[in-house]
């Protein structure tokens, strides 16, 4: 160790007061790297925030440049994706896609919420750790399967079944059919967030419940679920946002009728499906392109509102158990 002494001492034993006022070697270079990090961070954020702005700007052209009546956009009961520049012939309202989205989302939630919450309770409170890990992984795989595959398999398995058994929609393609499949797309998200919420309930809550003579079911029902209720609410809301935004399954399975659906069993076209099916042949100067951007902006606002609300609810949950 004596060998190390002279070399290090030279640096170490320099007067402290002098040393602390010296610039470090490489400080300038570090400044450049840090500035890059700042720039990257800000650039990305500006870019992402730009989405809303850009969609709105492109969409609002419909009303302000092309003079399409705002009232007609929001009340006209059909969404015909004609690639036209003729304002008289353009008959596009967001009402039909909006209602279609609502139907599909409703069907999705009716199926996905009980399934998702029951699964979350099982893996969080009942399953042995190994099973829990296995199911969580499987649910993540489920979430990772491309939705176009769900649509494809649904087309082959569910659509003929629905057509033959119930005769819904257009040859078995209906909001109901799509909603059933979307439920399985939304369910992993619900499970994951509800499970997090249940796991976040402190152990002593449970122990107290048991100490009072509750059995496991009572402990879960009267103590754990109420304690995790805001997280569970958020899980449902995020599942809802997922269903609203899902495109491929509804595009393939919901039938594609552009008028207002009066029941979930009808053929319909949601907001996402309207955009996906119409955008390909919407030329740059047509009325259709801004109309679809406007539809996208509305879709974005709806999902943003839902997720922000869910985030606020989750924040409440986090604060409740913050120690």
């Amino acid at each position: 160790m004596a060998a190390a002494q002279p070399a290090t001492d030279e640096v170490a034993r320099r007067s402290l007061s002098e040393s602390v006022r010296r610039r470090r070697s490489g400080a300038a270079w570090e400044g450049v790297v840090e500035a890059t990090i700042y720039a990257t961070g800000l650039f990305t954020i500006v870019l992402l925030v730009g989405i809303l702005f850009l969609l709105g700007q492109q969409g609002l052209r419909l009303f302000f440049e092309m003079d399409y009546p705002i009232g007609k956009f929001f009340t006209f009961g059909n969404a015909i994706t004609d690639n036209t520049t003729d304002i008289e012939k353009f008959r596009f309202g967001i009402l039909a896609p909006l209602i279609a989205t609502m139907w599909v989302t409703l069907v999705t939630l009716i199926i996905a919420v009980p399934l998702g919450l029951a699964t979350a309770v099982y893996i969080s409170e009942l399953a042995p750790p190994r099973v829990r890990l296995l199911i969580k992984s499987a649910a993540e795989l489920l979430a990772g399967v491309p939705t176009v595959l769900f649509g494809f398999v649904g087309l082959f398995l569910l659509v003929p079944f629905v057509r033959d058994q119930f005769g819904w929609g257009a040859g078995g393609m209906s909001g109901m059919t799509a909603g059933i499949v979307v439920a399985f797309i939304a369910v992993p998200l619900i499970i994951s967030i509800a499970d997090d919420a249940l796991q976040a309930v402190p152990l002593d809550f449970k122990e107290n419940a048991y100490a009072l003579g509750c059995n496991k079911l009572q402990a879960i029902w009267f103590v754990i679920i109420p304690a995790a209720i805001s997280g569970i609410t958020a899980a449902v809301m995020l599942g809802m946002a997922r269903a609203i935004g899902e495109t491929m399954t509804v595009l393939i399975l919901a039938g594609g009728n552009s008028s207002i659906p009066e029941a979930p069993t009808e053929s319909m076209r949601t907001m996402t499906a309207t955009i996906a099916s119409g955008f390909g042949n919407a030329s740059a100067y047509s009325l259709l392109r801004p109309a679809l951007f406007m539809t996208g902006a509305v879709l974005f606002l709806i999902t943003l509102f839902t997720t922000v609300l869910a985030d606020l609810v989750l924040d409440k949950q986090r604060k409740k158990f913050a120690r």
């Binding site: 007067s15 402290l16 007061s17 040393s19 602390v20 006022r21 010296r22 610039r23 470090r24 400080a27």
Partner: peptide, 20 residues
């Protein structure tokens, strides 16, 4: 202060200080 230098001062590099 350390040896008469205020370590909270603007001219003091906090990183360098922590090394000492």
């Amino acid at each position: 202060s350390v040896e008469g230098v205020d370590i909270m001062g603007k001219d003091v590099d906090a990183v360098q200080l922590r090394r000492h």
